[in-house]
């Protein structure tokens, strides 16, 4: 695909925007609609857009690590989050309220767990798209 400068700039901003919004979705998920899953999906859609626009390699580059590594790390994060209350209850939650002066911030292990979900979803969806796209590409080149 031939790249055009307007598309490039739009896409760059779109990717950044999607990243931020997805993270926002993740954070607010505990109190309002959203959460790790929709957050992760939204983040992955950034990868999808880039992949469709510039091909699988660009998508890979944007991810920096391989999708499977994301998956493994995300899974381990979730496991880690579930181990904080090891002695009393598996997956028991732990909450700390941080006072930042202007506002208070609730941080808890469920949030960490949700982060794990986010990372896994990001990895899985990108892996789906990248796999299919790269096969399509090799097929095309092969012809």
């Amino acid at each position: 695909m031939k790249s055009s400068p307007i598309l490039d700039i739009t896409l760059r901003w779109l990717v950044v925007l999607l990243g931020i919004v997805s993270f926002f979705l993740l954070l607010r998920g505990h109190d309002e609609p959203g959460g790790g899953f929709s957050g992760g999906l939204l983040a992955a859609s950034a990868i999808i857009i880039v992949t469709i626009a510039y091909g699988a390699d660009a998508g890979r580059k944007l991810l920096h690590f391989q999708p499977l590594s994301y998956i493994a790390v995300g899974l381990l994060l979730s496991v880690l989050a579930s181990l904080f209350q090891w002695d009393t209850a598996f997956m028991g939650s732990l909450w700390i309220t941080l006072s930042l002066g202007f506002t208070t911030l609730k941080i808890g292990t469920p949030l960490l767990f949700d982060l794990g979900v986010y990372v896994v979803v990001l990895g899985v969806v990108s892996s789906f798209v990248l796999e299919i796209e790269s096969v399509v590409k090799t097929k095309k080149e092969g012809r």
């Binding site: 998920g29 505990h30 109190d31 309002e32 609609p33 959203g34 959460g35 939650s93 909450w95 609730k106 808890g108 469920p110 949700d114």
Partner: peptide, 9 residues
Amino acid sequence: GHGANVVNV
């Protein structure tokens, strides 16, 4: 559960 979104909690 420290969250208002019951589904998410």
